Simulated scan of single mutants.
Amino acid sequence: MTDYRAVFDAHISFVNGGSLSADGFRLDLPSDAISEAEIGRLLVQHLGLALVADVRLENLQVIEEQHRGSRGVEPLAAVATADFRLVELSHTIREGMVTLPGIPSPGIRPHLTREQAVERYAPGTTFVMDVIDLAGNTGTYLDTPFHRYEGGSDLAATTLETLVDLPAEVFHLTDADARGIPASVFFDREVRGKAVLLHTGWDRHFGSPEYATDAPFLAPGGVAYLAEHGVTLVGIDSQNIDDTEADAGGERPEHSVFLAAGIHVVEHLTGLGELPPSGALFTAVPPRVEGFGTFPVRAFAKVPA
């Protein structure tokens, strides 16, 4: 289904005096068959304005562009069990892949080959068993408090209720001007109990040297806001939720705040551009391993068909 947005300059006046102007404003639309007056109404509703006297739009264009979550435009309905499609959000793990420089690449070796199985089983019956050497921070993975804090809860302590079919709020930020994602991005959505997924588009560099340099991250103000508003999980399609550049001094404020609060972190997501701003259900489940703080997940989302 194609998304549409309006691009325009606006001048809004108020019945009790004063005015508000905007240049190059973009607004989600329910369809491309919509009048200028209705776009003006949606603008007022999106901004939450009161006592509006007049709305004038200039240089109005309706374009095909992914929705960003404007208020007043109904999100896709909650996913019904019989009426959804699944969207893959994980990178494929393969032998020798590089998730980040310094993280060991996976190694896969046979424990039992099919040739060896011939000697163990009945004629025509063979099996293969393999061993994988795998760092927890490989591919798309989930961080638990144990990853950051001694004595924190580990993978075995995670509850399925905090990992499966979480209502997702997806913030499409591929055209953001700055690397750090500020708190103000989240002000127009209810995020309590949600999986907040940050679509930066950085996953296009996964597996290349560019992936580890100048990557987008969640600014400290953003992490404080999301933690205070009770999110369940935060995911990003970048190489880290924190700023990992040298001038950040090795600090990890995002991991520190989220994991202290028991908020899951999922990094190295991919495919977030296929999700609507609201209405999807997100799942990311690791194996139940004691004494381990982070591990790859099969992350995916249900979206209306």
Rank of each mutant, 00 (worst) to 15 (best):
A6P: 00
A10R: 01
F14S: 08
L20N: 04
D23P: 00
R26A: 08
R26P: 00
L27T: 04
D28L: 05
P30T: 12
S31N: 10
D32G: 05
S35E: 08
E36H: 02
E36C: 03
L42P: 03
V44H: 03
V44F: 02
Q45R: 14
L47S: 01
L47D: 01
G48M: 06
A50W: 01
D54P: 00
V55S: 04
E58M: 09
E58K: 12
Q61P: 00
E64D: 10
Q66E: 06
G72Q: 09
V73M: 02
V73A: 02
P75H: 01
A77K: 06
T81W: 03
A82S: 12
R85T: 11
V87W: 01
V98M: 12
L100I: 03
L100H: 04
L100E: 10
P101G: 12
P110T: 13
L112V: 14
A122K: 15
T125Y: 04
T126A: 07
M129K: 12
M129E: 14
I132W: 10
L134N: 08
L134E: 08
A135M: 02
N137T: 12
L142M: 13
Y149P: 01
E150P: 00
G151P: 10
S153Q: 07
A156Q: 10
A156C: 08
A157K: 11
D165L: 15
A168E: 06
V170M: 00
L173R: 03
T174M: 11
D175G: 03
R179L: 15
G180C: 11
P182W: 03
S184C: 02
V185A: 11
G193L: 08
K194R: 15
L198K: 05
L198G: 04
H199Y: 13
T200S: 09
W202E: 09
D203V: 04
R204K: 14
H205S: 10
F206H: 13
G207P: 07
S208N: 04
E210W: 07
A212R: 06
A215P: 00
P216K: 09
F217S: 07
L218T: 11
P220A: 11
G221W: 05
G222T: 07
A224I: 13
A224M: 12
L226V: 07
E228W: 01
E228D: 15
V231F: 06
V234M: 13
D237K: 06
I241S: 09
D242E: 06
D243P: 04
A246L: 15
A248G: 06
G249M: 06
G250A: 08
R252K: 13
L259D: 05
H264K: 14
V265A: 09
V266Y: 07
E267V: 14
H268S: 09
T270C: 15
T270N: 08
G271S: 07
L272Q: 06
E274F: 07
P277T: 08
F282M: 04
T283R: 13
T283L: 14
F292W: 10
R298C: 09
R298P: 00
A305I: 03
